[in-house]
Simulated scan of single mutants.
Amino acid sequence: MSGTVLAVTPRTQAELAAVLTDFAQHGIELLVIDGGDGTIRDVLTAAATVWTGAMPRVAIVPSGKTNALALDLGILDHWTLDQALAAARDGASIVRTPGRGRTRRHRPETPRLPVRRGRVRRGDRTGAAAHRAGAFKGFAVGVALSWAIVQTLFGRASGMWRAGNRMHVRYDSAADAGRVADTDTHRYILLASTLTRMPLGVQPFGAARDGLKTLLVDAPPRWLAAAAPLIVAGSPAKWLDRAGYHRIDTPALDVTMEAGFILDGEVYPGGALTIRQAAPISFVVP
């Protein structure tokens, strides 16, 4: 690695694309992103259109509201640029295969760029409420999920959480090779991620593993008081799937829903969304 550092602060998507194009022309060896999950999403989304081949290594200096990716990589909140550069010189890195989402039917304000890594959660109001309550970084994910469970257990029978939202979900089943699952029904929650370690130690997808993982819960949720602790703890209990708590391993799935959704802490309107694994990225780690 050379000792030259190019530092910029783009303020629009157009500026970001121009900056990354300039970086690519300079042949940078390391792309450092200072920010949270939303900033990382924006940068890697734009970078995917600039580097059509192998991307440079990526280092993260966490400073945003949610830093789930930094947590997954074992990067502490106080990690600095100097530490990231030192780790890059030492060659410390880990490869992650991020998720990639693309909306296929847009409202005018919906971003059209592919998302290189993300989580999709039903309940656009919950994530925003968690941030307003002061729950940032990894805690926001736990607060949002906990609030959804509380609203379901103690809210009105006619409440939106129990009723769920209608979703059409289609995917190739990895557990049953060659079978295509195609369902159209009301769902309580859809949670998808390529992270191997979730905030607060929760394990909604079961045992830690690579790849795109999805938790899909039918609505209204059955036996939630008994199921919720098992889901959070990553229990492999077989009855959970029969009760409507489906853990899915698939490289891609198509989802269509009218309700809004949250991706990396940002709220998007409903519509058709394709979620799939993207090309591996090498991240610098401590």
Rank of each mutant, 00 (worst) to 15 (best):
T9M: 07
I33E: 05
S235N: 02
L200N: 13
A233F: 11
T52I: 05
M257V: 13
I94K: 12
A226T: 10
T256H: 10
V255I: 15
G127W: 13
P221T: 08
A128Q: 13
T80P: 05
R112P: 05
G64C: 06
L85N: 09
A237R: 12
A259F: 07
N165H: 09
R209T: 00
V150A: 15
T126C: 10
R156S: 15
R179Y: 00
G270E: 05
P62W: 00
V8L: 12
L20Q: 06
R156P: 10
H131T: 04
A133L: 14
T214Y: 04
P199E: 07
A87C: 13
A207R: 15
T9I: 08
Y188E: 00
T194M: 08
F139W: 06
P220C: 11
A24G: 09
I149Y: 12
A59C: 14
P220K: 08
T152H: 05
T80H: 02
D254T: 01
R162T: 05
T21H: 15
A130S: 14
V8D: 13
I189N: 03
A225W: 14
H26A: 12
A18S: 03
R119G: 05
A208S: 03
G164E: 07
R41I: 00
G142A: 15
A70S: 11
G142H: 14
G36Q: 06
L71H: 15
L195R: 02
G201P: 10
H26M: 01
M167V: 09
D82W: 02
G142F: 14
V61L: 04
G211K: 12
G64P: 11
V180M: 05
A133T: 06
V284P: 15
M1W: 02
V180C: 12
P221E: 07
P98G: 15
L6Q: 14
L69K: 01
D22M: 08
D22R: 07
F205C: 04
G3H: 03
R102K: 09
A157R: 15
F154G: 06
V115F: 15
K137N: 04
L212H: 02
A92T: 14
V8N: 03
P204D: 08
T12A: 04
A278V: 01
T183Y: 12
T21P: 01
R11M: 09
A233E: 11
L44C: 07
R170W: 03
D182G: 05
F136D: 02
H131I: 05
M1G: 14
V217C: 03
A17R: 13
L44G: 10
H26Y: 06
V19C: 07
R116K: 07
P236I: 04
Q13E: 14
R89L: 08
L190K: 02
V61T: 01
R112M: 07
T194Q: 08
A233R: 15
I248K: 04
G38C: 10
R119N: 09
D42P: 06
I149W: 14
T103H: 13
G244R: 02
R104P: 04
A207G: 01
D184K: 07
R89E: 11
A24P: 00
A70Y: 00
L190P: 00
A237G: 00
G271R: 04
I28R: 02
R121D: 10
L16G: 01
R170H: 04
D82V: 05
R57W: 11
D22P: 00
P269E: 10
V202P: 14
L6K: 10
M198R: 09
I231L: 12
K213N: 15
G178F: 03
